[in-house]
């Protein structure tokens, strides 16, 4: 068992602290630091916590807008410290800056707040305990999780149909969730079938659209669950060929409003990210990649707004 580690949260001011306290106050060993105009004092408090600090949460009202140097200063202060940026929907940070500062964890809260904030403690505990993301972490206890191991590209459409069959019901909301779920499944499966398999020089082994059987030792597992409110999906392959640095770069590049490149350029991952409420990528280089996340039936996040992400690289094996 890991020793208890402190989670520190850096807020801009008291108003900022009050906004986040309903969800963050439930986290044990939480240490709140309000900058309130004096960054050096706040950094000094972080410095004093260094020995026990396992995760530093930063409000997006501080960084990158108000203090663009903050991530760099914190990394100098505590090298290797995991940083999680939390943002309300109306102050979503520019991804370019996050990419430059290697911020790999972002949680976005919708304007209306409460529903999506329910997952913030789960994201924090994931990072502090260095656990892998599990599909059931944002589903109600007892929810059935369906898992399928692929044999060929011909399994794609039946699996999408199986997902759609779980999202039963009438009405615009559930119909839209069905469409989103189908597209997410499509992108996840295409990514595992055609982007993940790489040769020794990093070249793609298969072209999109071609029929292919899985290679003898290749393993692709698609899982999903729906608890009536939240849909969670996960795709695991045993290639481990997705570079975490590339993911953030893909998201940043595709988010540029004038980007209409007709190539691939990670557009599939960008679409997955934008249709989920929280996007997870976990890579064990050369061995395993897991991509997935969750979205809510009554998601209040603006479809045009950036979403949260969790992009991690691990050294030990993940569960499929």
């Amino acid at each position: 068992m890991l020793p208890m580690q402190t989670v520190a949260v850096l807020y801009l001011d008291e108003e900022d602290r009050k906004f986040w306290s309903p969800s963050l106050d439930r986290i044990p060993e939480l240490f709140s630091i309000t900058v309130a105009g004096c960054l050096s004092l706040a950094l000094d408090r972080v410095r004093r916590l260094r020995g026990s600090l396992g995760l530093l949460v930063i409000s997006a009202r501080l960084y990158p807008g108000k203090y663009p140097e903050l991530a760099r200063l914190l990394r100098e202060l505590a090298p290797g410290l995991e940083l999680l940026l939390i943002s309300s929907e109306d102050s979503s940070p520019a991804l370019g800056q996050l990419f430059a500062d290697d911020i790999r964890h972002l949680a976005i809260d919708s304007r209306q707040g409460v529903p999506s904030r329910g997952c913030l403690p789960a994201v924090v505990s994931l990072l502090i305990e260095q656990r892998h993301w599990e599909i059931g972490s944002c589903l109600k206890p007892g929810t059935t999780v369906y898992s399928f191991q692929l044999r060929s590209s011909e399994d794609k459409e039946p699996l999408i149909a199986a997902l759609e069959a779980v999202l039963t019901g009438d009405g615009e909301e559930i119909a839209l969730l069905r469409e989103k779920g189908a597209l997410l499944a499509d992108e996840l499966l295409e990514n595992a079938l055609y982007n993940a398999p790489r040769g020794s020089r990093g070249d793609r082994l298969f072209q999109k659209g071609e029929r292919r059987d899985l290679l003898p030792r290749e393993r692709i597992v698609f899982s999903f669950g729906f608890d009536g409110e939240t849909l969670a999906l996960k795709l695991t392959d045993n290639w481990g060929s997705l570079a975490p640095d590339s993911v953030l770069e893909y998201l940043a590049r595709n988010q540029e409003e004038d980007s209409v490149a007709d190539g691939d350029g990670g557009r599939g991952l960008f679409i997955i990210w934008r249709f989920l409420d929280q996007f997870h990528v976990e890579v064990l280089p050369g061995q395993q990649t897991a991509v997935g996340g969750h979205l809510q039936l009554s998601s209040r996040l603006d479809p045009e707004a950036p979403r949260g992400f969790h992009i991690a690289e691990y050294k030990k094996e993940m569960a499929a």
Binding site: E179, A182, L183, D186, E187, E190, K208, G209, V260, A261, D262, G263, D264, R267, G268, F270, I271
Partner: peptide, 16 residues
């Protein structure tokens, strides 16, 4: 019906 990222890439190329 469904339009995936490859479909988007093809539409963009066509529209360009």
């Amino acid at each position: 019906g469904r339009i995936n990222s490859m479909g988007i890439a093809l539409l963009l190329r066509c529209f360009k």
